[in-house]
Nucleic acid binder design. Sequence first.
RNA 1: GGGUGGUUAGCUCAGUUGGUUAGAGCAUUCGGUUUACAUCCGAAAGGUCAUAGGUUCGAAUCCUAUACCACCCACCA
Length: 751
Amino acid sequence: MDKKYDHKIQEPKIQQKWEDLDVFKGKIEPDKKPFTIVLPPPNANGKLHTGHVLMLAIEDILIRWKKMQGYSTLWLPGTDHAGFETQMVFEKHLKEKGKSRFDYDRDTLYKEIWDFVEENKGIIENQMKRMGPGLDWSRYTFTLDESVVNTVYTTFRRMVDEGLVYRDDYIVNFCPECGTTFADLEIKHKDKISNLYYIKYGPLVVATTRPETKFGDVALAVNPEDDRYKEYIGKEIDYEDPLGKFSIPVIGDSYVDMEFGTGVLKITPAHDKNDYEIGLKHGLPVVSVIGLDGKMTENADKYAGMKVLEARELVVKELQDMGMIEKIDDKYENSVLVCYKGGHEIEPTVIPNWFIKVESLKKPALNVVKTNEVKIYPKWRKITYTRWMEEMRDWPISRQIVWGIRIPAWYDVDENPNLQITFINKKNQRITGKISDLLQNYPFEDVKEGLQTLIAPKDAKFRAQPGAQPRAEPCRLLQETDTFDTWFSSGHWPLATLKYPDSDDFKYFYPTSVMETGWEIIRFWVSRMIMFGLYLTGKPPFYDIYLHGLVRAVDGKKMSKSLGNAIDPLEYIEEYGADALRMGLISGTANGRDFAFPKDKVVAYRNFANKLWNMARFTLIMKDSLKEKENKDISNYTGDKSSLNDVDRDILNGLDNLIKNVDESLEKYRFSDASDFIYQFMWHEVADKYIENVKDREDKDIALGVLIYVLKTGLKLLHPFMPFVTEAIWEGLPVLDGDPELLINSKWPTV
RNA sequence: GGGUGGUUAGCUCAGUUGGUUAGAGCAUUCGGUUUACAUCCGAAAGGUCAUAGGUUCGAAUCCUAUACCACCCACCA
């Protein structure tokens, strides 16, 4: 053996060995209990980051531990298409080429992104493999695999049949210039100076920056604590504006800031996110006065057809003429939303979206956690889940992006003349309009091929199967252009990876054992998996949930590109080895909170790997010299302590104690406790004390027999944590009764 | 503004249902290489457990208040 442990030589060698012998291939063994983990899929086109390393380390510990305990283990890998994020990355590439997504029809754009992802897909897989995870790569799944899409479609159709799917208005960030919606992440705030208009509503005065939306007002709101206006709450007040005389209810809501303006807020649900929320809360109607073309709608009566800014000017002028404007503050600083693409002002707009009724889904999902059928570790995270589930409202599942699973709904253009279409025509121009108008100038096939986006009215007739032909003549069908919210599809992940509903894998390995992931996605992801699992199978998709904390940078701050404090795990693998990096991160998991990257611990565990290596090396040196000097072999310790001296018995009792501590800690997901127990025992009890004692022993044959037994047992206990170095040392140690060739195939020690 | 968590050694953090002298890694100081490892060994020093009250025979741990920090969510007409 070399004087030093060299991870650069050993780690690839050991990894290859596991792969060659197909150690982690999941097997259906009816006489064994299954133990299953589904890997939270990293971004297919991403790179390995420290969060992935921690995730892999924890899950690998569980898998190896259970495998050695005799379970039939399966750990399922996969990657995620990461809808929105990937599309953003791709669009940056387009921008470098001087293009944008608006230059492509939907199908072409999708194919281009697919190719782009395909190119980058292998990178993260290879990086993950360097951590030595016991994943079954033969069961690899990508979230856009046909089988996943089919599973998602089947669920969707079932939900349609059971009346759980509906279409309704939903407020989104709409850019009239770009003709599309933007996700919150695509929106930027821009500070600017605006006019704040103080407009009279009967006896009250409202301060607003958007007077032109007043025709969409459905209520006025005041703070219930506000003594000035208490008397108006629940009453209707009369007011006048250029369109005539109206009355409007006054509601009380603590959202209203008494300090701002006059303390009276007009509620315009169709054109403001907060107003929309308040409207929902108070059951108010939604009146849209701005259309998708950025022009005033018929609800704005004589202003209909005018652009927003034109309408604003005119409305203000006419209000002034009527004496309805108390004052104008022209130095009001506020921030407006603009789209990232062109910096155009965003018009919050309600457009029809797809929704899932969650009432019947969320109750069982809440119950399984409340009753501890599904347990959350650490337990103080439970409240995050239960609160979310209690407050969960109907789930908008459609997204106006291309990169994802397209919603399986088809519209017959003859049944739905009001479809709002944007498409690229044969001359490469973007054309927008109502389908019935467009079809007078363009053949249907042109629209279909060049289709970019489609917005169907909320009462549009759709079918969930493209083939269905209810009418005698052939239908002209256009498929919905929205895609599923990525969490709708990834909510199926435990089911999809196990090939629900009738595969052998599914029957044997479902429900899975543990869901291990970062706590920040408990609401988005974990809750959805539980809902779908219960809805489709009646069983939760897993029984334990372990939520690890976020790894922060060395300085304790969140890692970010702009701060330049991001840690590249590959550099640490190079310098200190995957084992050391894994252990360092594990040491930060004690209580499930976020933690700063523990660089010192990585170094400490690198040293520990070398210490173990030398413990084994020295044991073998002593064994050889015993043979040489006294011509004796070591005696094979069989587990009978009665004939041993106190020192031997102490170390063996210590070992028993260690086994107990490690098991207890792992059962409670106390990974750092377990690893610390092993570290302290092996280093400070075995190396510092027991080996020193062995040096002076007369009965070296017996002492070395005990030492090798202790060493091998220690390696087994440590193997789930530091798989490479323990496996590498195992190779060189003498074979005892029942020892398999590979450490990973050995039996977990018991007391 | 709502929520969650934190404040323990110079640094990064453990400390589980309250119970001997509050621990680890790193850093520091002193001493050491005869049969492994200097990525080593032995020893030492270092803490009013954020602050103020309270409960208790006993509090880092439970309760109340305050201060500061971090993160999540919602963001001002």
